[in-house]
Design a protein around this nucleic acid. Structure first.
Length: 492
RNA sequence: CGGGAUGUAGCGUAGCCCGGUUAUCGCGCCUGGUUUGGGACCAGGAGGUCGCAAGUUCGAAUCUUGCCAUCCCGACCA
């Protein structure tokens, strides 16, 4: 059967690809570096998006939409930001095709239709947004502006991987404007908390909140906050970022406001985003060699009912019971699918829904109906149990929560196991190579040392944890004094 | 962008080194039947620009050149 999965031990990368493709989340496309998100994968994204959107609205944000294209002159206005993205920009230079006189039936770019000014396909929207905000902000009364947009962006990556790094991806980007530095910093931290809450509570992936070093900071930001997650192969993955932009963009786009004393000052800014990359994090944090494992709270299908029948006459009996059960589950807000298709047999369906990571499977046959029970299997532990149909919906509802908690705890235990300290260079290498994961170690605070460590070990500083306790020590590489530990890891 | 690998039906593949009738097999698909508690079985059937383009040759899936795409490893990145 072509559905056979590569195991994690065999080839971790291939295992990941197999899950994405065979689990029906996405497909390769005819466009280099771009993927098709299939209905099952998009349903997952929709659930994530809807929850995040609710959390954004609950914290006072509103949605808007800005153009895909950014005129080059606007794009380059904030120099650091422009420089940071310059190497991965797609550029529109023409606006028309015409029939190619030398090749019948083919088209060519019409050289007459060159744009006066090139358009950059947004790799992020700060430029077009701050150019717009300039027209919206005159007074402190116009502040704050708390806008989010759901959009696609393009970053022309050299090497792409399904969900983790594609040339085009979906994300949300929040762009806020504030009257004071303090307020902007509070916003930056608030949104980091929103991300952490979402990823931990809904995706069941534990994260470390921290700030980035200068090397890893978003180009154009004063401070970049991040949440870092741990994958099963011990590599770190940045799951979300929130930037305190200071007055950099306000200065670049000349966005000033009058305060209560009628003094003019530049506006303070933040931006924050998470992307479809989170789906990659979800897959690599939870799944196993049998397939995906979806956290119930965002699973496209939470419960699947598989009928097991003998002969045509038993089918209507089972259908009736199953439909009734599905209705009861739906009434509790549970996303349930009754797979009554006659195309495949129960065993095939069992394997298929395991591959797709459906948290709970209910098998129902005549034997069960006679005894007023069902067979209930949970994806996270593979446990099977026979449960009475009496009070089943409430039981299932509780079980979904239990599964959610269990996979979080499992991931949390893994994360804890994979945060180790190192106090000498030898130790550092050893932990990195043998255990993987985060290595908590002292660092002298210089970009040169960070760079040198990266070159020697491939490990980068993922973050300086927000909850760090000050501790005097010596840099792992240079031996120079250090005031706190930072987290190193090899990362995606 | 460098290194490696791959490209033959929806998927996985044989054939390629050593050119030669109608391109192999399995899964899947279609039709009919028997089945259904962990990826069912029988019978019949459909499905192919052999990644694309040039070239060599009487003849190319097979040899040559160029191009394209994907994966893996690196450099770069959410």
């Amino acid at each position: 059967m072509s559905k056979a999965l590569t195991t994690r031990a065999e080839d971790y990368s291939q295992w990941y690809n197999d899950l994405v493709i065979k689990g029906g989340l996405a497909d390769y496309s005819a466009v280099r570096g771009c993927m098709v998100i299939k209905p099952y994968g998009f349903a997952l994204w929709e659930n994530m998006r809807d929850q995040l959107d609710k959390m954004f609205k609950d914290t006072g944000h509103v949605n808007a939409y800005f153009p895909l294209f950014v005129p080059k002159s606007l794009f380059e206005a904030e120099e650091k930001n422009a420089e940071g993205f310059a190497k991965e920009c797609a550029i529109v230079t023409h606006y028309r095709l015409k029939a190619d006189p030398d090749h019948k039936g083919k088209l060519m770019v019409d050289p007459e239709a060159k744009l006066e000014e090139e358009l950059i396909v947004r790799p992020t929207s700060e430029a077009i947004i701050w150019n717009t905000y300039k027209g919206w902000i005159q007074s402190y009364r116009d502040l704050p502006i708390l806008i989010n947009q759901w959009a696609n962006v393009v970053r022309w990556e050299m090497r792409t991987r399904l969900f983790l790094r594609t040339a085009e991806f979906l994300w949300q980007e929040g762009h806020t404007a504030h009257a004071t530095r303090e307020e902007a910093i509070i916003e930056t931290e608030k949104m980091l908390d929103v991300y952490a809450e979402f990823v931990e509570e809904y995706m069941a992936v534990p994260v470390i909140k921290g700030i980035k070093t200068a090397n890893e900071r978003f180009a154009g930001a004063e401070e970049t906050y991040c949440i870092e997650a741990m994958m099963q192969d011990g590599k770190a993955l940045q799951a979300g970022t929130s930037h305190f932009l200071g007055q950099n963009f306000a200065k670049a786009f000349d966005v000033k406001f009058s305060d209560k004393n009628n003094t003019l000052d530049y506006v303070w800014a933040t931006s924050w985003g998470v992307s479809t990359r989170l789906i990659g994090a979800l897959i690599m944090a939870h799944s196993d060699d049998q397939g995906l494992i979806m956290p119930p709270r965002i699973a496209p299908v939470q419960v699947v009912i598989v009928p097991v029948y003998k002969g045509d006459d038993s089918k209507p009996v089972i259908d009736e019971k199953a439909n009734a059960l599905a209705k009861e589950l739906k009434a509790l807000g549970i996303r349930v699918k009754f797979d009554d298709s006659d195309n495949s047999r129960p065993g095939w369906k069992f394997a298929e829904y395991e591959l797709k990571g459906v948290p709970v499977r209910i098998a129902m046959g005549l034997r069960d109906i006679d005894n007023n029970v069902v067979e209930l299997a949970r994806r996270d532990t593979k446990d099977k149990q026979t449960v009475s149909m009496e009070g089943l919906p409430a039981y299932v509802s509780g079980l979904l929560e239990e599964i959610q908690l269990n996979i979080y705890n499992r991931a949390k235990a893994f994360q804890t196991e994979h945060i180790n300290t190192a106090d000498t260079w030898e130790d550092f290498i050893k932990v990195l190579d043998e255990k993987g994961g985060f290595v908590s170690a002292h660092w002298d605070g210089t970009a040169e040392t960070e760079e040198a460590i990266k070159e020697k070990t491939k490990a980068t500083i993922r973050c300086i944890p927000l909850n760090n306790v000050p501790e005097a020590g010596q840099c792992i590489l240079t031996g120079k004094p250090s005031t706190q530990r930072v987290l190193f890891a090899r990362a995606y």
